[in-house]
Design a protein around this nucleic acid. Sequence first.
RNA 1: CGGGGUGUAGCGCAGUUGGCUAGCGCGCGUCGUUUGGGACGAUGAGGUCGGAGGUUCGAGUCCUCUCACCCCGACCA
Length: 491
Amino acid sequence: MSNKNNKICTRQEDYSQWYQDIIEAADLAEYGPVKGTMVIKPYGYAIWENIQKILDQKIKKTGHKNMYFPLLIPKSFLTKEASHVAGFAKECAVVTHYRLKSNDKGEIVVDEKAKLEEELIIRPTSETIINSVFSKWVSSWRDLPILINQWANVVRWEMRTRPFLRTSEFLWQEGHTAHATNKEAEKEARKMLKVYKDFVEKYLAMAVVAGEKSESEKFAGADRTYTIEAIMQDGKALQSATSHNLGQNFAKAFDIKYYDQNNAFQYVWQTSWGMSTRIIGGLIMTHSDDKGLVLPPNIAPIKVVVIPILKNKEDNTEVLNFVNKVKANLRGVGNFEIDERDNVTPGAKFNEWEKKGVPIRIEVGLRDIENNSVIMVRRDNSDKQSVGLKDLAKTVKENLKDIQDSLYKKAVDFRLKRTKIVDTWEEFVTEIENNNFVLAHWSGDKEDEEKIKAKTNATIRCLPFDQKKESGICVFSKKPSKQRVLFAKAY
RNA sequence: CGGGGUGUAGCGCAGUUGGCUAGCGCGCGUCGUUUGGGACGAUGAGGUCGGAGGUUCGAGUCCUCUCACCCCGACCA
């Protein structure tokens, strides 16, 4: 995360650099000592805490309970479900020893005598360890459904990482459920995707397409994977959250069985679903501009920043007294901060808080005291207006709401503008090259999907739920197709 | 693992055909003047030039080896 002269690179110049500059300028995170890891700094973590708080409420409201499972997974657990281990084998951190010792040179080395009989895997996800526990809990239909969630970290040893979007270790919530019927599991998987979609739209003001993953893009070990795909400002797709109908794959691997009402042995039907710190990367790339981060008010750790314009000592007292009145009139707008530092000029403060994406700035100076008003400036459109103290809380609240709404509208408009419906291969190639979302017919053939990816770098993001069924011919192979699917380059 | 690049102060960088006591900007400390869009002046602190070896009277600069990091691919719910 290098940053030249404390300036933010523009999106036009270098999108990737811009993204990294935003993270540094807003002081969200920095790289950790181990390559691919990330230190999430207080302001970045405050955003995550807000995401946690709101999403956690929604998860609990849908009947799930939080609990915690261990970090370490016996290797044998991971290998019980064949497609699951195949999907994760290449990116697992493995614990092989449990002790260090000093050698004759005085160096600290691994004690080879302390080799573990069975290697332990640092969880890349928790299906296996959770289901091994579920198998002990389930014996009757009365034990179902089991609806649990955990907030945890996971490790996936990716070759190439990017802050928030793909890090070797990341934070997330993962929900895991077990049900008596497939129908119930299917309903659960779709319900939780809807929870994610609502959350992302209402709080993060992101525009997403919900749908089902193709066979080759689905989760390792799932029967069906549902996803919400967001479009970033460079036109690439970001998988923002997923929900899986696991069928009975893990139930059979971990022997999770129950007696039903007819006294027959049945395997349970399961789901899992997750949203991670990756969503913060999506949040950044959806709204931010060339001045820095832009945060939707519903998720911003600081909704309003008050900047007193200080001149000299006598006047300062007067201004700061007035600030106290302003403070009283801000009650109810949400978390706000007063930047009283006297060693930084107002201009520098304006810039600093813009980089951090605070939705509303309030300037308070000598000349406002006479009018009993303040200057209010919006981060999203730079609109500036004078607001009387009496109306302050009301006006601020209205504007926060308006910022939230217009950020969402802007995101939706952008998604619509960058979504192209195409019918020929030539158009397809052009629109993908221009980094658009493309709705095109696809035969359903895995080989065609692979060839399209090889030729254009585009993947099937999803088979959108709201895409009406219509027959057509595959944009690549010209084989018959039942519906258009969403193609895009992806993060 | 392939292709490219960079290592000099906390950050961003300059450093000529090898030459004198290693520089600049930002930031930081102190003092003063400032403050409605990134303030200014004075002054001060801060470096084994990524590491090891070699060539040389002399190496940040040349040679060899090595390490680290970054970018683009490959990989990737």
